[in-house]
Write a protein that binds this DNA or RNA. Structure first.
Lengths: 229, 229, 229, 229
DNA sequence: GTTTAAGCGAGACGGTACGTCCAGTCTTTCA
DNA sequence: TGAAAGACTGGACGTACCGTCTCGCTTAAAC
């Protein structure tokens, strides 16, 4: 999160994820810092240009040439820090969303926990053009497992983890049966929203979000299990 | 319908692809059939080449140049019948799947109806590489409303309609409440499967399909959910 | 001239250039004339469309597709009568010029003969866009000897022949030496005008035409021959 | 001039094609020379391929695709330096002719000056396939004024200028009248040769060149022509 | 009056080239 | 050593013609 760790170890200053193994042993968190330092300005300009293109004209408009030109940067500089335009777009979108973190509240009610978690996100994501951008990232992920993992790690898992925690608390409270398969439950919660988001057959309204969560919760709470074999 | 067939609609909605001209006897002698007739050989070769590329190397490999070369056909011929490579891929995939039509059986049990409808499809679609292909088509749909509509018309609506019919029968039988919001229920049924299919965070196993359908049905049968917001 | 004889023998009526060898021996100039007769309307429409394109947008705009569409005619019909678009353009231009035949007058003065022959033509040809069209036809002729011969036969030789006759009359009158090389003299007369026409370095004005003819005549009349070896 | 060299002007007017960068010592260090330097190898390969195609198969065979393939170069590289295939062909032909510069000698006799200037060129140009190539360039020039200017600047003006100088010397010597219209005289000298070259009605032989020059000089020396219109 | 044969409109088709755009890589100079 | 500049390969894009072809319809002379 701090430094999003694109490509290899591009975070020489602070919270080094991959401190070079041959560091001076006692120089604690201070990379030796040789050569010209990375341009913070260039970095920001690239992300800004990519964000702009991504949100206004879609992933396919995020071409390295155009980003470089808009950011006043050379293509080589982009390639130095991001291996593909998809990973650049990923980070651009991520930084765009940094405000809307999955804020989990423990309200004591599973339903309220989920609504407070999911509704803000559904509103954000349901407002064009995020649905389109996400679909394009998902498509890009199909051909690149590493990118797929990165996408899930940043965009899917955090929210899924928050909902998972809420479900576990509900289980401990006895609000849902102890034998509920939580991963399936999570898919039952998020699946319908993503479905509308990506397929666009209907709009992702607040009402839909509420109804889908309620219906899913009904299913999760169980009551009877499969009526027939 | 007879044979105007330029660009779109060169394969009908969901039923037989090429009604033999000698069919209903009283059909009004429809098209006078002018000009050189369309080459069936070329048509098939194009779809075969596109299918092959699509399934083995993904949508991005379906390039007009390569399809043309493999099909022994000129690019102009492809463009005459398909406006974009996406629409070509769509039809190629559709013809690939023509065997697996959404066969709906009326078993008298909603759960059995749904399982018999969804499991074969989930097996097909969960077997690589269909998930990837579908994700790519969905991505392409984001930037092209017409294409999105066509995709939904051919791939989403037929199965949704089949499930909708099953739900309506169940409602008439009193198996589910009369006030169930059917479109939401449909998203609860299909959403989780598409979610795994597209995000790939977990595999779409038979067991998952069964569990997700059961859980969704529980939610749809409802009764205990929070009566008020 | 009567029937311009494009392609093979499309002039069944009159002055048949290629009477079929198996003709009835005594049926003199009357082809048997079987099948549907040639459409005069189509013929005219094709030439009109070709002329229009040729004069307004140049030879490169005379494409078979566009001519066919404009003339409301099928491409096959054009190809039936003209082997290439160049030959079509040639005939279109020729019919466009049919009014301005090389009218030769015998004024008794070589200079007056030539001026009366050449000035009207120079005016016509110097008015855009004929220069461009002629240049394009000449270029097309470079790669196709048959077309080159046809071009010369229709556009160059008639005027050259008229001037040749004037020179011969002048020679008989003693106005120019008997040993003048007439073919060279013709090039001296026409060459400068074509030069300006095709290269466009200067305009083909009336004054230029007069001066060039005068200077050429001076050279032709001779007086002294090469001053030195 | 130094090396801005985009599109046009990537070969100088009429003199040395690539002045070595270390030339005049006091040249103001002109271009800072940023970025990857242009590939000399690619440049030469492109011109060589274009020349080959041009001379052996004509201008229409100089297609960007084929030149790129033969030169082992990408099309984009060609388009970076030449806007059209015509301009490429122009420069290819020019470089092909770089040896045969218009060498003017001051022999003291106008006729000898002209013969020494024109005969080598007429021999070169009269040897196939240069006539065809020149005709095709002239045709291309009709639709593109910029190209026409470039063509004249490189191929026509230098020789015209050389002849103009010879005429002026002759005028100063009193060998031709002071009131001769030099531009017309130049057309009288070059016109006949171009005429045969482009129309191909007769061959451009040494004898023809001599006779045409003699006849033209007679006309230029003048004196006896009709004093009044 | 029925052949027979050509003319014709329509339009599909295989090819070829166009000019543009983008992904990635590489080579240079400057900071 | 990072960054800017920008040349370069490779490949796909979508369009436009060319010249050929396969149809079915029309028109008239020949039988």
């Amino acid at each position: 999160m701090g430094e999003p760790a694109a490509k290899t170890a591009n975070a020489p200053a602070g919270t080094a994820a991959d401190v070079p193994a041959d560091a001076p042993a006692d120089a604690p968190a201070d990379a030796p810092q040789r050569g010209r330092p990375r341009s913070h300005r260039a970095h920001q300009a690239i992300l800004a240009a990519a964000s702009d293109l991504l949100l206004n004209r879609g992933l396919s408009a995020v071409s390295m040439d155009v980003v470089a030109e808009r950011a006043g940067v050379s293509k080589a500089t982009i390639y130095r820090w991001w291996p593909t335009k998809e990973s650049l777009a990923l980070e651009a979108l991520f930084s765009e969303w940094s405000a809307v973190q999955p804020a989990v509240r423990d309200t004591g009610s599973l339903r309220d926990d989920l609504v407070s978690l999911i509704r803000p996100w559904a509103r954000l994501v349901g407002s064009r053009p995020y649905g389109a951008v996400i679909a394009q990232l998902i498509a890009a992920a199909q051909a690149d497992p590493a990118f797929a993992a990165e996408y899930r790690r940043r965009f899917v898992e955090p929210r899924r983890e928050a909902a998972r925690a809420a479900l576990q608390r509900a289980e401990e409270r006895g609000e849902i049966p102890a034998d509920v398969r939580i991963e399936v439950a999570l898919d039952l919660i998020y699946g319908p929203i993503y479905h509308r988001l990506l397929h666009g057959h209907e709009a992702v309204t607040d009402r839909f979000v509420k109804e889908a969560i309620d219906m899913a919760l009904n299913g999760i709470r169980g009551r009877s299990g499969p009526a027939t074999a």
